[in-house]
């Protein structure tokens, strides 16, 4: 019983309500995950992506700050999309003192399996303000088709 009292996680408690606030956020996150609001990256491969679909196409987006279209290599097969490239952070020259360095540079490559066949001829990609958007039109066979009932 006494042990239990001291087994509280020792979080840095700055205010009396901060720990409560933290718990609240954790609970919110958990419920979000359970309801499918936000999935943890299952793949664990850079970059993180969001995939959405409408009746005509799949839409893949990724946050790639500082990258231009030329730094990216995008290829597709009938039902996969590959995004690869390299993020370069230009050198700031000699005699530079770093106080903080949180941004990272490096190579990446990710293959994304799509739930259906796509029309590889008509894939479009653009990279604006550091956000890559790829539109992959669905193949005729995967598009929903209305069947009239006679």
């Amino acid at each position: 019983m006494i042990r239990g009292l001291f087994n509280f996680p020792t979080l840095s408690v700055r205010g009396p309500f901060e720990e409560l606030e933290l718990m609240k956020r954790q609970m919110e996150r958990l419920s979000d995950e359970l309801t499918g609001g936000f999935y943890k990256s299952a793949a664990g491969v850079f970059p993180l992506i969001n995939v959405a679909e409408d009746k005509d196409a799949y839409h893949v987006s990724a946050e790639l700050p500082g990258l231009l279209g030329g730094d990216l290599d995008i290829s597709t097969t009938a039902n996969t999309l590959t995004i690869s490239g390299e993020r370069k952070i230009p050198s700031e020259g000699e005699n530079v003192k770093y106080h903080r360095r949180e941004r990272e540079a490096g190579k990446f490559s990710r293959v994304i399996g799509l739930p259906g066949q796509i029309n590889t001829e008509k894939v479009e990609a653009n990279c604006i303000d550091g956000i890559l958007k790829v539109t992959l039109p669905k193949h005729e066979s995967t598009k929903p088709r209305q069947i009239p009932v006679r």
Partner: peptide, 22 residues
Amino acid sequence: PAVDILEKGEEIILLADMPGVK
């Protein structure tokens, strides 16, 4: 946002990754 902060001569330079911001 992830940032780099560096001192270059008489300047402080801050770089921040903010994808999607206009």
